[in-house]
Write a protein that binds this DNA or RNA. Structure first.
Lengths: 214, 214
DNA sequence: TTGACATGTCACTGTGTGGTGACTACTGTC
DNA sequence: GACAGTAGTCACCACACAGTGACATGTCAA
């Protein structure tokens, strides 16, 4: 039996650094090519690491993604965009959320790019985002003044609308998809979304977001 | 050399019907699973046809998609949504386009689902949609009253914004992507989009779209 | 120094994919 | 009926992928 000797030089031998390199490779890959390009081989190539190490350290692409999700600054940014401290006035609130969206969009387009990919592909990570959305929606709902609380002013719908951007609602309309009791695709679902969109727009118009203002 | 005899029964022997079955399979697959699931093998499976026939009849997946695009009712619907006959009043126009979007969304969710997929994946078919958008944008631009024509009221940006939905802009922001002279991702690109969005919202608010009205 | 363990490398399997060549069987024309 | 052309079937190739087993080597403690 021939003795096998590695042709490539053995690398750094620093497990923690290697883990980090892998996770960072996930982020780069995700931002550059989206979830579709995410695979064991691709991540291994991007990180300059043998794919066996990915299996050994993370146990597979799903766990690797979870690790990325819990270490990267992606989810906190999402939470921030979705609205950490809701204002009391619904008009201000809607306008504020949209403003945050636009600001984040301008400052960190990669983040929302990944958010959109997530919404489109309905990746397992979607569950995490859904949880964040739901929590934020409840917070916002509770922050409403009593006459508006959850009756006509459809806060969950607005939150969903802004949460991952319109595309989330546009894309998943076919499947029976539920968000905070709104069945996306049903007539009353669309009516609620229409109403929410209108309210949002009114708030935006009345807000301080004007052209040319930075 | 052993004589080869087909184990499966030979099928209908109707080329036109087979072509149609293949094209219809593309539509079903696209609606059900999106562009990501679209492949020679998948289409062949869906159509119940040997993939060799796809190569022979269409010459590959790209040409097959073009054939689907030119025979299905997808693109006419897109053109309709993007606005066939622009109104003269910009507020009416923006509101009308958004109303058409919402109506189409409610009536035919599959169509916009495919549109969104197209926007996300930047599939070769995107070129076709871009052409439609550009044409519509020029039409709308020309239909503007003189004081508004192409100065502050950013019609191409609005058209793009509504064209494939917000997701188009959200997703492709990272790459240097040009639409009607607006470099998506550049500061002035975002400012124009912001302004366009605000104008759109004002138009929507002033339009006849009110909650509960059908 | 020696041994255990962790870290990294290589080789391999199985599966799915896009794509092509070669075969069989049907159909219409002369 | 013989023939050509077309429709359909099968077998195969090269490639990329996810996943696993086995080997080599560095590190650290006893």
């Amino acid at each position: 039996m021939p003795k096998r000797t590695p042709t490539n030089p053995v690398r750094s031998r620093d497990a923690e650094a290697t883990r980090l390199r892998i996770i960072e490779a996930v982020g780069r890959l995700l931002v550059r090519e989206g979830f579709g390009a995410l695979g064991i081989n691709a991540v291994a190539r991007e990180a300059g690491v043998d794919k066996v190490l990915i299996y050994r350290y993370f146990g597979g692409i799903d766990h690797l993604l979870e690790a990325w999700g819990s270490t990267s600054d992606f989810w906190p940014t999402v939470a921030e965009i979705l609205g950490e401290a809701p204002e009391s006035d619904p008009a201000e609130l809607a306008a504020g959320m949209l403003k945050r969206h636009l600001q984040a969009l301008r400052a960190r387009p990669h983040t929302l790019e990944v958010m959109a990919w997530e919404a489109v592909t309905r990746h397992p990570l979607t569950r995490i985002l859904d949880d964040i959305r739901e929590t934020r929606a409840e917070q916002l709902m509770m922050a409403m003044p009593p006459p508006l609380r959850g009756v006509k002013f459809d806060l969950p719908a607005i939150s969903a609308l802004l949460g991952a951007g319109m595309q989330h609602l546009l894309l998943r309309s076919r499947t029976v998809d539920r968000f905070n009791g709104v069945t996306i695709g049903s007539p009353e679902g669309w009516e609620r979304i229409e109403a929410a969109l209108q309210t949002l727009c009114r708030a935006l118009v009345e807000s301080s977001v004007t052209p040319g203002t930075r």
